[in-house]
Design a protein around this nucleic acid. Structure first.
Lengths: 224, 224
DNA sequence: CTATGTGAACAGCTTCACAGCG
DNA sequence: CGCTGTGAAGCTGTTCACATAG
């Protein structure tokens, strides 16, 4: 028997799928029943062809002459991304950023529940970090037990760069399969594990480059 | 006279330049004098050819037989990205995330200084958000004056999705030329302005997709 | 002999344009 | 008609392989 889905999906298409999903949820909140590839593309700065091609990678769920049914497409996108069920997440590092992430409401809305919080600092152990959930800070020693107990597959790393690799290693040893890394270092992990990185300074830096380019080209046009 | 630098630089190369710079600063801290394209690539999961090609877009600053001088390359990369001088930044939205970003140490290290903080909520006005800098929360009405006064070109948006567009509009009207958007919506801006977006839930979602793929392919291999 | 810089080959992604369906 | 799905074309980015410099 040949493979059921032979096509390999381009990484950029997967990234955009998240954005489509976000936009679709906004549309649903505004009571839109259907949306065309043109509308969806416009709101994200993409062409209609791009949207159709992307969605076609994941299956055929458009309706010619009508567009895409919003609720249907949301369900499909969630299923493809894996967020049609809630994922339990562990967070390590109770600094300013860690605390903000624990109380960030956007996660639970999209299928992620931070169910355990760890820190190396014994002074923080037991501190209540989320009153609504009754979440308190656990010591790192408890990581393996809690990860297994609560079926945690995803981890958020909000520790300083200097300890990021070592904490990541402990997460993987405990059974975590995906790490969202906020520390400004590249992590080394085995090929059974996925890593996504968010470097806040890098994002500002990229913005800064874009702004510099804008300013420079404005100057040039002025002189011409 | 023809254009001095005819080549247009690929966006992925610019993104990677930030990562090279970060890695180079780590190397400098470890007292490395030079680095080869192979070494630099390995630490970031890239090929040596990719690194050389990227750096060549920005100029010729390698030394055949030796590699790249770390301090020299850092200076060049900073100059290209525009972070060889410090940028003043305004932050809007003093929620959990906003507070965490104000006290994030990673920004100043890389050339970004949050010099003003705003919030819509009058109850927050005057609150001290950064003791070291003596930064207090300003009301939105003061945005235009303070942006001009402190030569602010970059803004960080840490407000709810529902008010993000409107706050962005006010930032642009005040003279901000680049916006780093943490709200989960696509912003509409004029073409004189740059936007970079960080959607925390989207990053987790992408991670989740990768993990699902890993688990799925492991299952498949097991059966074969 | 080591390591860069770069044309040329290759791969992958995006855009085009249109057949086909509701 | 309107709008999707999709081969084919076009374009952009990556990898290769080697001339060249120290």
């Amino acid at each position: 028997m040949p493979t059921g889905k032979p096509t390999v999906i381009p990484a950029p298409a997967v990234r955009r799928l998240s954005l489509y999903l976000r936009e679709l949820e906004n549309l649903l909140a505004q009571n839109h029943r259907t949306v065309s590839s043109r509308q969806l593309g416009e709101s994200l700065g993409l062409t209609d062809a791009q949207v159709r091609k992307d969605l076609a990678y994941f299956g055929q769920f458009g309706h010619p002459g009508v567009g895409y049914r919003v609720d249907e497409l949301i369900a499909r996108a969630r299923h493809i991304l894996g967020t049609d069920k809630t994922w339990n997440v562990a967070l390590v590092g109770v600094g300013n950023l860690g605390r903000a992430l624990v109380s960030y409401r956007g996660f639970i809305k999209r299928g992620f529940d931070i169910v355990a919080v760890f820190d190396n600092d014994p002074n923080l152990t037991g501190e209540l970090v989320d009153a609504a959930k009754g979440l308190t800070v656990e010591p790192m020693e408890k990581l393996p037990a809690i990860v297994k107990e609560r079926s945690i597959l995803l981890g958020i790393l909000a520790v300083p760069a200097s300890s990021a690799q070592q904490v990541a290693d402990r997460m993987l040893a405990a059974g975590v399969r995906g790490v969202l890394n906020f520390a400004p270092v590249a992590l080394r992990v085995n090929d059974r594990t996925a890593v996504a990185a968010v470097d806040l300074a890098v994002h500002l830096e990229q913005l800064c480059f874009q702004v510099s380019s804008l300013i420079k080209s404005a100057d040039t046009n002025e002189k011409v």
